[in-house]
Design a protein around this nucleic acid. Structure first.
Lengths: 305, 305
DNA sequence: ACCGTTCCATGAGCAGTTCTCATACCTTGA
DNA sequence: TCAAGGTATGAGAACTGCTCATGGAACGGT
């Protein structure tokens, strides 16, 4: 009696796993999925039986993934995404060069605000069926690339060459070398006397070398929430900062931007995706537009007034 | 009435698509799947309805994938493989550093015969649950890397840097630089008078530069089936050949191998996989063994007697 | 032109699976 | 001890996918 054990998880089972991981509980997951808590319980139990391992630790506070569950959820996200892509690609295969379907982009704040808009405008103009969705992710911890690694995004706009090595299974490519510039309140008599404003996301490693080569160091350091807050503090006369050019696009007149010259620090900005998705039409379309549009941005960044 | 159309293909539907593409017909696919032709027909029709595109052109001779079907099948293979990986990884997540499950390797002939055996021996010794399956693929056309691109293999041993660019969505890494050597019948009085034996798989581009730099060219060229046949022809005194070192491992005493010196042609041998699979435990385990074992091989290759 | 073969398509009915509903169980905090 | 979160479980309804039986279309040999 060879019980023909079907060991593969069906898409709806994968969706349940992801929902439970996202919501942190069976009941909550059931809510977002529009089914009964009972269905979720049955489904998870079924998945666990198929896999042969406990995927969630159930407790009074909800359900937490076990190590096995963590892995399963990451793969579940990727598989579900690939199923989407299969649909979109097969549908669009007839009319070639037409991409369609959703495209989940993770970007750090300044990229989402100042780099992506023109790119997405061109993208949508060229590919009518594409639905880009940008999510702003702070470039701390595993950063935007982590979203791709976890299957939560298809492509990330990230700072490359940072301390953390690229997670296994991802590919990256550079788009532009973004210079840092000194920004301080316009018309301030002694900008060097102001405290330096910094923020968590601004990985110090990019500017550290530059600072050690300087013959002066700022008197104090103030921590702000994000680059927007930094700019606002500087604009209010409360400090000066070393900021990447993208964060300075469209800065108010009340701040003065000083190019730091040849030895200025820079950071590499690029994109990160998985090789599976790199072959998909939607991701390829975005990369094409990024490569076509970003260089023009770069020109503006280097020649600030 | 928003008919909540489930648009995702279930694993068994994906398997049907792959089987139809592999066998070239609904009936044959039904046979290999152990189900009825009717079930296949219903399943394919259902998949086509979900996707919204015709996936196979049906004819009296069987069924051929449409362009949309081609894409769908490629993704189907990858998704099915990821489902396997999900199982294996989640199952093995508890006991870390233990890889288990099948590992499909595509390799060209000489690599499968002379490079992989010691690697796989160590791999199996270290990871008891792993099940490597080597398939020999001729390195012509899209070659071994094409197997990975099509989802038919998890990792390929391939010659890198060839004419064809890496298909999108794959990653590659070099393992060794394999030198070519001159091989001719042992004790032959005038080896240069013999015809040159070549074979389709031996991409001429690797040796072409070297030939143009020589002050003599062979009198004639003979085409053989594969490198084994070439070696056998040479061994029989019917010609001489320029062959990569891997093909010469364990050659009989009846052939003489002459190192071509510093200007000798070489080819890059490496592995190709997808980034999705690069993160999996089984592929990582194999790559680790490849990197540990191959350099020892390389030492032997460069110092032939 | 006929007939036989070899494909795929289709409809009805059965079987297995996955939902819902109702309820039981466990733990925590008041 | 009770109320309020959470999950587990069993029985039946709804659904899905499979098989069986049959039909239609194209090709090739005679």
């Amino acid at each position: 009696m060879a019980r023909t054990t079907d060991t593969d998880l069906a898409p709806h089972e994968l969706r349940v796993l992801v929902a439970v991981a996202d919501t942190g509980g069976f009941s909550a997951a059931a809510g977002t999925l529009g089914v009964t808590q009972s269905a979720v319980s049955h489904s998870v139990r079924g998945s666990e039986r198929k896999i042969g391992a406990v995927l969630f630790d159930r407790g009074r506070t909800g359900a937490r993934p076990t190590p096995a569950g963590d892995k399963a959820v990451v793969y579940a996200r990727r598989i579900l995404r690939l199923l989407d892509i299969l649909n979109a690609e097969a549908r669009g295969a007839a009319r070639s060069d037409v991409a369609e379907g959703p495209l989940r982009i993770a970007a750090f704040r300044s990229a989402a605000l100042h780099l992506l808009p023109p790119v997405l405008q061109r993208l949508r103009a060229r590919h009518h069926g594409i639905e880009p969705r940008v999510r702003i992710v702070r470039e701390v911890g595993r950063g935007t690339a982590g979203e791709v690694a976890d299957g939560k995004a298809d492509i990330a706009i990230a700072t490359l060459g940072g301390s953390a090595p690229l997670p296994p299974g991802l590919i990256a490519s550079g788009l532009l070398e973004e210079p840092y510039a000194l920004v301080h309140p316009a018309g301030h008599a002694a900008p060097r006397s102001l405290p330096l404003v910094d923020w968590a996301e601004n990985c110090g490693s990019y500017t550290r070398d530059w600072w050690t080569a300087q013959d002066w160091i700022p008197k104090a350091t103030v921590e702000a929430e994000d680059d927007g807050a930094v700019l606002s503090l500087v604009s209010g006369g409360h400090g000066m900062a070393i900021m990447p050019a993208l964060s300075l696009v469209g800065a108010a007149d009340s701040v003065a931007i000083t190019d730091l010259g040849l030895g200025r620090p820079t950071r590499q900005v690029g994109y990160v995706t998985t090789s599976e998705l790199a072959g998909s039409a939607v991701v390829r379309a975005l990369v094409r537009e990024l490569r076509a549009t970003v260089p023009q941005c770069a020109g503006l960044l280097n020649s600030e007034p």
